[in-house]
Every structure is written in C-alpha cells, then in structure tokens.
Design a binder for these strands. Structure first.
Lengths: 187, 187
DNA sequence: AATTACTTACCGAACATTCGGTAAAATTTA
DNA sequence: TAAATTTTACCGAATGTTCGGTAAGTAATT
C-alpha cells in the first residue's frame, strides 16, 4: 500500500495535542511524529522551518477555531447577549475539553517559548478581552465595569485550568465557567 | 585550597530560579549548573538522584518559605485578621516578585512534570486553600463563603500570573491581589 | 603529635541516548 | 514522465547521567 497523505486537519490536531500538553521545549519531534503519524522528515516537508513553524501553525489553528466558534458565538448579534453568553461559554468548555485540556497560551509562555510567541500570545489574550468587553457592554454594563469583567474572565479561565490540573478535579473549571455566567447575568 | 562548599541556600536559589522560569523539561543541567555555580557532576554529588531530586528540593524549599512567611503571617493569631491579610498579601507579592516570577506549581505541572510532582502540587494547593479558608472564617464569613473565596484566591493568583506574563503587564497581578484584599475586607 | 584512614566537595571527561535537522531515495499521484 | 509526498538513513550537537580522580578537611590510631 502506498502511504496515504495525512490530512492537514489530522496533523494540526496531533500537533496541538502535544504542544498543549508538553509546551514548546517539552514537545519533541518524536512526540510530534507519533501524534501525527508522520515521520520526522515528513513533518519537515510540511513545516520546513521545523518545530517553531509547527507551534506557530498550532497557534494559528487554535486562533482560527476560537475566532470561528467562541468569538463568533459571543458576538453574534442575531441572538440576545444572554444566549450568546451561554452558547459561547459552551464553546469554551469544548475548547478546554471541560477542563481536561490546558490552554496553549499557558503551554507556550514558559521561557524558551515565550520569546518566540510573545506577540501571538499577547494578541490572542487581547482578543479574548476585547470580545468579553463587547459582551459586557451589550449586557448594559458600563465601560469600566465591562473592562474589569473582561480581564477577570481571562484570569478565571486561566487560573481555574491550572488549579484544575493541579488538584486533579475538573469540577473547578466547570464551576469557574458557571460563575462567569452568573456574573454577567446578575444571577 | 579545598574547594569551598557552595552554600545550600545559594544552590536552592539558583535551582528555583531555573525551574520556575523553564519548567521541568526546559531546565537543562547546563542551566542548573550555570545558575548554581556548580558543575554538573557536583550537582550529582549533592543530588544523587539527579534532576528530579533537584526539582523536589525546590518544591520543598518553596513550601518551607511559603509556610514560614505567607501562611505563618496569614494565620498569626496575635494580630487581627485584617492586618494578617494585608501582611500576608505583601508576602505573596514578594513570593512572585510583584508578578515577575511564575508559580512553581504552574512550571512543574506540564506533562512529564505532572506525573512526578502530582502529589506535592496537590498538597501545596490544598495548603493554600486551607489557609485562606481559615482566614475567611476569622473574618466572619460562613463556611460556604469562606470555602468558595479560598478557592477563588488560588485561581486569581494563578490566573493573574499567567495573564500577567502573557500580556507583559505586572499591573494585572497587582490589581488581582488588591481585589483579593477588597473582597475579604468588604471594601 | 604524627600517622593513618575516611569523608566531603568538587571537577573533567566520557557514557548512552535523544535532540532537532538534512539528504537522498522510494513511493504515489497526476 | 513530472511533481508531490513519505520514508530510510544519517548527522552533529545537546541531553541527563556516571566514572575516575583530586584536594582538603575530619576522625581514629598510634
């Protein structure tokens, strides 16, 4: 049998899983090869600039996913802000597999990774903040309130994911997401 | 001259700096050697079980520091809970160098590290929660309130440190600590 | 006090393994 | 056949770890 072309989507999925779990330095080409089903040299065919290009592809891939799922939902003006929030938070749960998956920002922001991806991480975080700021306004909070709340959302997601992993209890993430909903809906 | 003994404190300080910044896999023996002033072989003289023993020493060292500074302050019954809180938060700022240093839990809880240090990380986090739970009770919150607040403290510290690093703005950490104080003091 | 034995603290060099990366060949599509 | 894709085989460098050995201190013996 001739080796069939491995689909881009499968490759991205595999790379993403490894980088999220192990970070930049921790992710070896062997890991990436095993996760994608491609040999090292084949990965270099797809990503001539090596590991860094793979990590960049993962960042872009996730940014694309978040933009077209999380943000798109949260900013969809065809439905009420309340519904947007609930559906958007559901997408966030999907993104982090209910607390089982780490955030790529966290994984790639250790020294050795942080210099390489500084800009993407910063931009990515700003997108999160901008989106929730927008939603806050739509829910009739003041600019100042919405600003503080948006930053707080990012902090609580990141924090709960870490505590989640450290304590081995995904309920912590679930609760954090629920509290975000409550805060925005005043319940 | 007989080679002068490098002080344990210096070694721990160096090891801690590297593991906090780079994580377990990211910290190479070269890094650890440079940071401590001991050659690789000498590090193995002090830590016969190698890198893992070094990381464990760092965890113990930080746990000791936190116990004798952060927790001791927060639980010091000779002063009012309000004062305890303020002084304890000041110690926390010291621990994280006002947001410039990462948390060792975060650094060591990537895959490859997480299996090795699972227990210490979990126990460490539980100590944090127990301490702030105690403080919450001392400030007349109900058991349920104090429980939620304690977990929230851990989440906000961890989360703000990550967002801090990602956004390149230590003010985020400072604000988070201030909000913790406000929450406990109802201001 | 002098000799001997042992321990501590460190280091250079080598170990096997794994690292990220490359060239060339094999395989398959078109 | 020409182009694209994957593989085998390989490389130098870096990894964590171990070995052999040195210099200096301590303890025990005489």
């Amino acid at each position: 049998m001739r080796p069939q072309k491995v689909l881009d989507e499968e490759i991205l999925t595999g790379l993403t899983k490894v980088f999220r779990a192990k970070g930049y330095e921790g992710a070896s080409l062997k890991d990436l090869s095993d996760a994608t089903g491609l040999k090292k040299a084949s990965l270099y065919h797809r990503f001539p600039n090596g590991k860094q290009e793979m990590a960049n592809a993962v960042l872009s891939h996730l940014d694309y996913w978040v933009t077209n799922n999380v943000f798109k939902t949260l900013l969809n003006e065809e439905i009420t802000p309340q519904t947007r929030l609930k559906k958007g938070l559901a997408e966030i749960k999907r993104l982090y597999d209910d607390g089982n998956e780490t955030c790529i920002f966290r994984a790639l922001s250790m020294q050795a990774g942080v210099e390489l991806f500084e800009e993407q991480i910063k931009n990515g975080m700003q997108e999160w903040i901008a989106t929730f700021f927008n939603l806050g306004l739509a829910l009739n909070f003041t600019k100042q309130e919405a600003e503080i709340m948006a930053l707080q959302v990012l902090i609580e997601i990141q924090g709960s994911l870490i505590v989640c992993k450290g304590m081995g209890d995904i309920k912590i993430f679930e609760t954090a997401v629920q509290q975000i909903e409550n805060k925005y809906l005043n319940t």
